[in-house]
Amino acid sequence: MDAAETVETAGPVLDGIPRQPGATPGREPVAHVEPVAHAVESEVCGPPSEAYVVRSEACTVEPGVERGVEPGTRAGAASAQSRRALFPRPWRLLPTPVRTPFTFFYATLLALTSLVAEHVDPDLVRALHQGSSTDVAHLVHSPVPVLVASALWVAGGVGSVYVFAFVLVLTALERRIGGWRTAGVFLLGHVLATLVTEVPVGLAVLVGHLPDSSLHRLDYGISFGVAASAGALAGLLPPWLRWPLLLGFGGMLLDDLLAFADPMTNWGHLLSLAIGVAMRPVVREWHRPSGSAGEPRARQRGRHRPAQ
């Protein structure tokens, strides 16, 4: 407001107080109206804020702006983000080719390889799995191709719980940090957990604690990458979502470990989850609080710039 605006006085004008020229009875000129505006705001609408405008002794709020939050600022972006976390839109849980291209096309590829594994000759499928296995023998001779090939199959087929976790976790993570960084988190968990679980097997065979057949143990799938992605996603969620995710996912992994069906792989799952959790400082630095993960950062910065 500027000095030319006036406000209604609470009562009649006291006699003996001279009026300025041009003033009308019952209205007093206000040289500095900001304290009055703040007083009205504190009584009618709560704490004063630049997001409120006093009109006719009442407060009106700009659309989409929370009380006490200035639009276009970091606080405003965080407020909008918290509203999205509290009230997620169901369709945002699924990948799309535009907003989450990495998750969408990777999921499509996994669906194709799962169909192949389900409908072609079982002997051929076994040969494909064995050729893609990240066992010690393959890691020694062709580590990079086999690490990539092993992540093209889903152990247990499309009915595996890791397929469900893959879609939800990687979609949520990619919307927050982008496709390339989500791929990096997934690949880091996949590679590190594979190496940490397979190198001890090779050393045990070398010293005679395990038979030579252990060098060709079947090991493939996306579970290590999914576990690392779940741990990284937990670092970006509010506590009321973070702890249920970690406790639920971690409890499932511990239950598998206690079953002792495949302890080496089960330890790899827990290690992958720990790798993702340890990446919390990095993924929080990557996190984009405003806009989608697929939107360029430069465009986000240029969307709104508050007046200096």
Results as ranks from 00 to 15, higher is better:
V196Y: 01
A227Y: 06
L257A: 01
L237W: 03
F249N: 07
G225W: 00
A228P: 06
L257S: 03
E198Q: 11
V163L: 01
S160F: 07
W286A: 00
V158I: 14
V163Y: 11
A183Y: 03
L206T: 10
V185M: 04
T182F: 02
H269Y: 08
T182C: 04
L203P: 06
V167E: 07
M252Y: 12
D255K: 10
V282M: 15
G156Y: 05
W267D: 09
V226K: 09
P244D: 10
D262A: 09
T265A: 08
R280M: 09
L192C: 14
G221T: 09
A232E: 10
V283F: 06
E174K: 05
W240H: 14
P238S: 08
A230I: 02
L257W: 01
G179L: 02
A278T: 09
G208Y: 00
W267L: 14
I177L: 02
P200R: 10
V205N: 08
V148D: 06
G184N: 01
D212W: 11
L241V: 08
A155M: 11
G268E: 05
V169A: 08
I177E: 11
V277E: 02
L247E: 02
W267C: 15
M264H: 14
G250V: 01
A183S: 03
L147Q: 06
A149P: 10
G276S: 02
L152D: 02
G156M: 14
P238H: 06
L206R: 06
G231M: 09
D256P: 04
D255S: 12
I222F: 04
I275H: 06
F260N: 15
F166I: 09
M264K: 08
L192I: 10
V199I: 10
P239E: 00
A151W: 01
H209E: 13
V201Q: 02
A227Q: 06
R176H: 13
A227S: 13
T265E: 07
P211A: 12
L254R: 08
L210Q: 12
L253Q: 04
V169S: 10
H190K: 08
W243P: 00
F224A: 07
A155R: 11
S160I: 03
V146A: 02
D219M: 14
H190A: 07
W243I: 01
V163H: 10
D262V: 11
Y162I: 05
L210C: 04
A193D: 09
R217T: 12
L254T: 14
W286D: 00
A274Y: 09
A274N: 05
G250K: 00
D262N: 14
S290A: 15
L152Q: 11
H209W: 14
L168P: 15
A227G: 09
G189T: 01
Y220Q: 05
F166G: 03
G178E: 00
L254W: 00
W240P: 00
V201C: 01
